[in-house]
């Protein structure tokens, strides 16, 4: 749901290498506040790395990322990583929530404690208040009755919704999702995607790396197709699936057609 025309995420000429493997070869994109953007592309195209760069879990080699007033930039990979750069990355992680394919819930804590932990540790919010926030969010993702359970007792869909609630507890300006439904049984995918749709209708800015093509097509404001470390095509969901302009996009979707 597009609500405003304010640019929230601006990425310019982003490069990232893992040793001699050039994973991101100059990615540039702007994303506006309230957008829900899906990123699709073949495995190894760099879409996950791109997503992880957006909250500083991977540090960029060169280029510039600006999210909600926090800027991370380097002129080249030779430039030393300074303390202020690392502090900016840390600031960025506070503003940008991320949800992983494997949930990564903290197994030694209950669902409620998982959600309460970051606000208490990072924002120093008092326990009572953190508990209030956590219970409200768990209610929102439909897990109110599960708050005292340990993660090991949850189904995949429940665990992923708990992970979303945990990220939301930090009141991020942007939510990133790295293949959030890929580890789920097919019948559980819907409940997670519904939470993301709900968040979209509330105006949350969300960037989703996904293989759930129907979701990408129906729910996103637009779809980004990446291949070999580059953004190949950015288009409206319906348009990119029914009438891809680029040959590489067409190729990818044709291969996919047999699968879905």
């Amino acid at each position: 749901m597009e609500k405003s025309s304010e640019v929230l995420i601006a990425v310019e000429d982003l490069h990232k290498r893992f040793e001699d493997e050039h994973v991101l070869k100059g990615v540039s994109i702007t994303i506006k506040e309230g957008d829900l953007v899906s990123i699709i592309g073949p495995s190894g195209c760099g879409k996950s790395t791109f997503l992880r760069c957006l909250n500083g879990l991977e540090l960029l080699d060169s280029g510039r990322i600006e999210i909600a007033g926090v800027t991370l930039s380097r002129s080249s990979s030779d430039q030393a990583i300074t303390r202020s750069f690392l502090e900016a990355a840390h600031e960025m992680r506070k503003e940008v929530g991320i949800v992983f394919q494997g949930f990564n819930l903290f197994p030694h804590k209950t669902v409620l404690e998982n959600v309460m932990l970051a606000p208490m540790v990072v924002k120093k919010i008092p326990k009572d208040e953190a508990e209030g926030i956590a219970l409200r969010l768990l209610d929102k993702v439909g897990l109110k009755d599960y708050s005292n359970r340990y993660p090991v007792t949850l189904s995949g869909g429940q665990a992923q919704r708990a992970a979303i609630a945990r990220s939301l507890a930090m009141a991020p300006k942007v939510m990133l999702y790295d293949e959030p439904t890929s580890a789920l049984d097919p019948e559980l995918v819907g409940e997670v995607l519904q939470v993301m749709r709900d968040l979209d209708s509330e105006g949350m800015t969300q960037v989703v790396v996904t293989h759930a093509m129907h979701f990408a097509r129906d729910a996103s404001d637009y779809v980004v197709f990446m291949d070999q470390g580059e953004i190949v095509e950015v288009a409206d969901g319906d348009e990119i699936f029914s009438n891809p302009r680029n040959d590489r996009t067409r190729d990818f979707l044709r291969h996919l057609a047999g699968v879905i």
Partner: peptide, 27 residues
């Protein structure tokens, strides 16, 4: 302790020290 635990903690805005103390070391 899976590396994803550290990533999740950092992704929530914790510093490495906070992540170690509250998430990695207890496990």
């Amino acid at each position: 302790v899976p590396v994803g635990q550290m990533e999740a903690a950092l992704g929530l805005g914790m510093t490495r020290r906070e992540a170690l103390r509250h998430v990695v070391v207890p496990q």
